[in-house]
Amino acid sequence: MHSKRTSIPAHVFILIYLLLCIAVLLLLPWIGAEKLSWEQVLLHLQGDSTADGLILLRQRLPRILLAIITGGALAMTGAALQVLFRNPLAEPWTLGISGGAAIGAFAGQLFPAININLGPFNSVQGFALLGAAGAMLLVWSFAQRPGTITTHTLLLAGVTISIVSGGIMMLMAYFVSPFQLVSFHRWMMGGFDVIGYREVVSLLVLGLPGLLLLGSMAREYNHLAFSEEMALGHGVDVARVQKLTFIGAGLATAACVSVAGPIGFIGMVVPHIVRNISGYDYRVVLPGAFLLGGTLLAVCDGIARTVIAPTEIPAGIITAIIGGPVFLYLLARKD
């Protein structure tokens, strides 16, 4: 099995992931509640405005783009967090980082008085970032306590933070006017229904620097995954890598959560799939997780849009239904 892995060069795997992702980006816009004719879309592209063309270019394409970037960002962040915490089940959601970011984003939306918009950046993202940072510091200080912390206690702590954040958000929702409640409720389930290119841009404001930061440390993650002390011996500045991973993961999670709500399990399941397909080298795992995570979340969102069309279910529900059992399976297999 291992010889099969090493005989295929790394860039071939990345190319395959990339082709999959492009295929999804090109094919998924044609699937949806409204059937589109390609002649009408072609007409639109030639300059005449048609309804089919508008649906494809202004509604479905940005939505799929957003799902790809969100899924990719969550999967890549998950892959990095799994190394940072030396825990293959870590990801933004199971560690409570999504939950923290969600409280922040929710608070930001709740009080319009503190709403500031600076181009594509808004205060909701800022609050999400604060929430993510708070949750991450909490889990990290928990994980650093010597001796007593096992893989499962850490996850228990993370999931507890997620549950507590859910409770706090429900408490906040209790005081919200009924008319705001519907949109909050949808956002909490995680999905992409109110979408245009504006959201894509605002996702990239925090998301892109976060992902670039994580991606720049691919080699260091290999060393860290092998052994923290060995990494030090090899000349890796471990403290710096840990700090930057915190910042990168916080930025990426905050960006995803403030646009799409807390979406679970993509960040945990996808790195596993990628490592099983193309091996453990993080120079392949990180870009692979981004591309495959994007592909999978876009497909989940595609299912969410069509399975009981014209009603749309939030993508977060689909990922939870698929990802939850996988999580349980991996949890059981570890022992």
């Binding site: 799994q82 052994s227 030090l232 000349g235 890796v236 500045d237």
Partner: peptide, 20 residues
Amino acid sequence: SRRSIARCIGFLPQETPPLF
């Protein structure tokens, strides 16, 4: 820096199980 130390000194810690 860790890097310049590592060019002179090789360090092998006690064996810990690798993540991957």
